[in-house]
């Protein structure tokens, strides 16, 4: 059974096809409004989420399907000690496809190995978050017209930020990319991303602690939140949480065609005054996420022979 746990589970051709489908959904939504009639998506969210869960649910409703939902470990059998494997086997009896978010890294893989329906990883701890990456890729393609030959700046928590890891992994397969990694020393990208993705594929990158020094070189600026829930130590969080705040002043140094992205939610790393700048693309990203999730649900249900 085909599942999507991480971005490399999808080939470049499949990514292109998903983006083409998403563009077609945007252009002709009526053509898709009944594609999943009678089908059920189970959203199993064992960790707080607003946009990802609602995005999956909106995606399924707009495809004409229905949604079964579990939110929070406290309201499900997980609170009684049920394993992820048993949950996946059980939910497979009720739903045609599962979207799962879990605080533990690898939980989605365990679910996929045990479910008899496709599983989409909607975020597993600090590990990866592939559908956010699909939203990011569509946003970049729509805003810049290409996915190669770009200088991509990633700023903030690059250590625990799963969206950052997934985006670097996904974009490293395109030509002509250069990454600028902007973070405090303590929140640099993990070795497995740097070594296995960037160094192994000879992709140029630089690491810096200063956003101001590099913002003028960027085509894309991908801001991230320092995530309180990933820290074991509150003191470390408080010390690092305000490391980078994007303001209209800093935006003046950016290129006129800079595309500012953020996986959201933001706390204070992008000041609200930046929202009115036409280069702010983070709310478009949210909408693109829904279209890409629609495309992914369609692809996986088709491959599973359920539509």
């Amino acid at each position: 059974m085909r599942s999507v746990i991480d971005v490399p589970d999808l080939t470049l051709e499949e990514l292109d096809r998903l983006m083409d489908t998403a563009e077609d959904i945007i252009a002709r939504p009526d053509q898709y409004s009944e594609r999943c009639h009678g089908k059920k998506l189970a959203t199993l969210f064992f960790e707080p989420s607003t946009r990802t869960r609602l995005s999956f649910e909106a995606a399924m409703y707009e495809l004409g399907g229905n949604v079964l939902s579990v939110t929070g470990a406290g309201t499900s059998s997980a609170a009684k000690g049920e394993s992820v494997a048993d949950t996946a086997k059980t939910v497979s009896c009720y739903a045609d496809i599962i979207a799962m978010r879990h605080p533990k890294e690898g939980a989605a893989l365990v679910a996929a190995n045990n479910a008899s329906v496709p599983v989409i990883n909607a975020g597993d701890g600090g590990h990866c978050h592939p559908t956010q990456t699909l939203a990011d890729l569509l946003t970049i393609r729509r805003e810049k017209g290409r996915l190669g030959n770009l200088t991509v700046g990633l700023c903030g928590d690059l250590k625990f930020g799963r969206t950052v890891h997934s985006l670097i992994t996904a974009m490293s397969r395109y030509e002509g990319l250069k990454f600028v990694l902007i973070s405090p020393e303590e929140l640099k990208v993990p070795g497995y991303v740097k070594n296995d993705c960037l160094i192994k594929n000879n992709i140029p990158f630089m690491q810096t602690t200063s956003l101001e020094q590099v913002i003028g070189d960027l085509d894309i600026l991908y801001m991230t939140r320092v995530q309180r829930e990933r820290f074991f130590n509150e003191e470390d969080y408080l010390r690092l949480k305000d490391s980078y705040i994007l303001t209209p002043e800093k935006m003046k140094k950016g290129r006129p065609d800079l595309c500012v992205m953020h996986p959201l939610p933001r706390v204070n790393e992008i000041s609200i005054a930046v929202d009115d700048d036409p280069r702010a693309c983070y709310f478009k990203q949210v909408l693109n996420g829904k279209y890409m999730r629609m495309a992914l649900i369609l692809m996986l249900l088709k491959e599973a022979g359920r539509i």
Partner: peptide
């Protein structure tokens, strides 16, 4: 040994 790994809480895995 990663405390964030699913194997840290699911003993049977």
């Amino acid at each position: 040994k990663n405390p964030r790994c699913i194997t840290s809480c699911e003993q049977e895995l």
